[in-house]
Each structure stands twice: as structure tokens, then as C-alpha cells.
Amino acid sequence: MNDELEGTEQPFVSHLIELRDRLIRAVIAIGVCFGALALWPGPTGLFDLLAMPMVSSLPSGGAMIATSVISPFMVPLKVTLMAAFLLALPVVLYQVWAFVAPGLYLHEKKLVLPLVISSTLLFFLGVAFCYFFVFGQVFTFIQSFAPKSITAAPDVEAYLSFVMSMFIAFGAAFEVPVVVVLLARMGLVSIEKLKEFRGYFIVIAFIIAAVITPPDVVSQLALAIPMCLLYEAGIWAAVIFIRKTQPPADEDMPVA
């Protein structure tokens, strides 16, 4: 009994040690990025950059306010930590990939690695699209409806919460091609079914956009239209992935 336990305990412990080491490396990468960003451009500089779309849409001389005593200190730190995580995300994902890769088949490696890279790039693309295009249009549209008797002075905590939710929404929405590819590659849905579902997906995209975005036409269209286009791109990518990642007939064991 002891011999049997020793044969299984050692690999399990070694996997835990490797997992711990890779988590430490990921945390160190985030810490290094945080330290670099804290030196330049600094927490205040990062927050000013994040707040630029809102501040530029306010009337001349308008500014944001802090209703909490520690908000002027904590909010820039949160922004810096968020930026550090995004900057270190390639290293974090590489550590995840390096941990699971030895247990994957060769054809699974051909599938997972491109999906990890593409999902990261698509998430960044969604965040960039939200910041550079959507925010400017949405904030200007909202301020154009504000009565002259109302002085717009958004709270920094509320603004950060809004920005985070919008970043996550657009970053997740831009992952549509990855989801489509996975569904098709795993055999859950055929390419023909995905094409037939196109009309239903357009309706679903507009419903999702109406639920998770502010109640204005600009942001809803800015989210729904890219989702529909990315759905078409996912169908096209699924055809290529299925053809390129089929397992060979003689592949029956993982490659270490």
C-alpha cells in the first residue's frame, strides 16, 4: 500500500510545486509591471489618461469629484493595478500554458496555443475599441442631453466602476470568434448550424448590448455591430481550425 501511494504522491506534489512556482512568477510579473507604471507615468498620470474621455466631454472647466476621503489615493492605485495586470497578461497566460501543455496531445497544442493568443489579442482589441471610440461618443452623447441647470461632476469611484464594467463587457464581447471556434471544433455545433443561427445571433447581440451598455443608441450599436461581424469571422476561423487541428490517427498519448 505504501509503495502504491508513493508512486502517485510524488507526481502530485511535483505538480503542486510547479503550480506554486508559476503562480509566483505570474505575481512577480504583475508586481514588476506595477512598479514600472508607478514610476512612469505614475498612478495619477494613468488615472488622468483613463479619465480623459470623460473630462473632455464635460463643459469647459469641468472636473470629476471624490466623495470618499481616500478615493483620491485608492482609485489611482486601483487603476495602476488594473493596468499592470493587463500589461503582464501575456506572461500570466504563458505560465498557464506552460503548466498545462505537457499533458496535452500534439493536436490539442495546435488548438490551444492559437486560441490563447487570439483570445488575448481580441480582449485587448475590445478594450481599446471601448476606450478610443465608444467612450468619446457615449459621454458626448449623454452630455448633450444634460439640462443647463445640471452641472456634471462624476464621482471617481463611480466612473472607475463604470469603466471596468464596460471594459469587461467589450473585452468579453470580442471573444465571440473564440467561442464559435471552440463550439465547432469540439463538435457541439456544426458549421452549417452556425450559419443557420446567424439571424438569431443578431437578435441576441442587440439584446445583450441593450442590457449591458448605457441606455443610448450609440453604445448599443457600438457593441452589437462588432459582435455580429465577429460572429461571421468566427465561422470563417472555425473552418480553418477544424481543418488544421484534426488529430492524426496514430496519436494516442500526450507529448511531454
Rank of each mutant, 00 (worst) to 15 (best):
D3N: 05
E6A: 02
F12K: 01
L19E: 01
R22Q: 11
I24H: 05
V27E: 07
V27H: 01
A29Y: 06
I30N: 03
I30A: 13
I30H: 06
V32C: 08
A36T: 11
A36L: 15
P41V: 08
P43A: 14
P43F: 15
D48I: 10
L49W: 13
A51I: 06
M52G: 11
M52Y: 10
P53W: 09
M54W: 04
V55I: 15
V55K: 11
L58F: 08
L58C: 10
I65T: 14
T67E: 07
S68F: 04
I70M: 15
F73Q: 15
V75N: 09
L77N: 10
V79W: 03
T80N: 01
T80G: 01
A84T: 02
L86S: 03
L87V: 11
L87S: 06
A88K: 01
P90M: 05
V91K: 02
L93A: 14
Y94Q: 12
A98L: 01
A98W: 00
A98G: 07
F99P: 00
V100E: 07
L104Y: 00
K109T: 08
L111M: 06
V116H: 10
V116Q: 00
S119T: 10
T120G: 04
F123L: 11
G126M: 12
V127N: 11
V127M: 09
F129Q: 08
F129G: 12
F129W: 11
F129Y: 13
C130P: 01
F132H: 13
F133G: 12
V134E: 14
G136M: 09
V138W: 06
V138K: 07
I142Y: 01
S144K: 07
A146E: 07
K148W: 13
K148V: 15
K148T: 15
S149D: 13
T151S: 15
A152M: 13
A153I: 11
P154Y: 02
E157T: 14
L160S: 04
V163G: 06
S165G: 00
S165R: 11
M166K: 09
M166P: 12
F167T: 12
I168Y: 05
G171C: 05
F174W: 00
V178W: 00
V178M: 10
V179I: 14
A184K: 01
R185T: 07
R185K: 12
M186C: 07
M186K: 06
G187P: 01
V189E: 03
S190Q: 09
S190C: 07
E192S: 15
K195A: 14
F197W: 15
V203A: 14
F206E: 13
I208A: 15
A209Y: 04
A210I: 09
V211R: 07
P215D: 03
V217C: 02
V218T: 14
S219P: 05
S219T: 03
Q220V: 03
Q220L: 02
L221R: 04
L221Y: 00
P226Q: 09
L229S: 07
L229A: 10
L230Q: 03
L230G: 03
A233E: 08
G234F: 02
W236Q: 14
A237Q: 03
V239K: 14
F241G: 05
K244S: 14
T245Q: 00
Q246V: 14
Q246I: 08
A249H: 06
E251C: 14
P254C: 15
A256Y: 04
